[in-house]
């Protein structure tokens, strides 16, 4: 009787919670959903009419957390404590944090278990920073000056404005900003409008 030889290459079982993504993906770059959205929408070729492409486009429109180019790149690269500043994070973890936007360290460690290596306080600061960027994403860019803006009782510092937007803020009557509701309505729309300048 012959023994059946099993040709089973020693494949490492995939497990994202332990950062095991298989040989092809262990060292691969991971895009944020917002970045995929940008890439698909700004493609110089015609969009391929495949089911996969169209579903992806729907998906990224639905789930992109950072809807402007500036905020998507700021969450990765921008100051002060964003994802690239945290050397312990792998590409996969970076993408998971920015895609899922957990509110606190406990939630983050529950949905991305490999984050246990990062200290709670440190992680919390990072997550807070990202939440702030989400809230003020229409204003965030990183080539300009800091403008403190009082919103009601809490003072929120918008790190930066796009140059065009800053000029616009500069021309507003002095009292305007104080009475601005937090990011909604015409203020944001105006800032959006200047993005193309």
């Amino acid at each position: 009787m012959t023994t059946r030889l099993r040709h089973r290459p020693n494949v490492e079982e995939e497990d994202a919670s332990a950062l095991k993504l298989g040989p092809e993906f262990n060292n691969a770059g991971c895009l944020l959903i917002s970045e995929v959205k940008y890439l698909l929408e700004n493609r110089d070729k015609d969009a391929p009419d495949t089911a996969v492409y169209n579903k992806t486009l729907d998906y990224v429109k639905n789930f992109a957390k950072f809807n402007t180019t500036d905020s998507a790149s700021a969450v990765r690269d921008g100051p002060p404590r964003t994802l690239r500043r945290e050397p312990a994070l792998t590409q996969f973890e970076t993408a998971q944090i920015a895609n899922l936007c957990p509110a606190d360290a406990e939630e983050a460690k529950s949905i991305i278990p490999s984050l246990v290596k990062i200290d709670d306080d440190r992680l919390q600061t990072l997550l807070d920073e990202i939440q702030t960027m989400r809230k003020f994403q229409t204003c965030i860019a990183w080539n300009c000056v800091a403008v403190p803006v009082p919103f009601g009782s809490s003072v929120v510092s918008l790190e930066t404005y796009r140059t065009g937007a800053r000029d616009l803020v500069g021309t507003m009557p002095a009292g305007t900003l104080k009475h601005m509701p937090p990011v909604s309505g015409s203020f944001v729309n105006t800032l959006n409008g200047t993005d193309d300048v």
């Binding site: 079982e13 994202a16 919670s17 332990a18 995929v36 899922l100 991305i112 278990p113």
Partner: peptide, 11 residues
């Protein structure tokens, strides 16, 4: 290319 692959354990 942009690829999508779901992994076990991923949220």
């Amino acid at each position: 290319a942009i690829v999508f692959k779901p992994f076990k354990g991923e949220v």
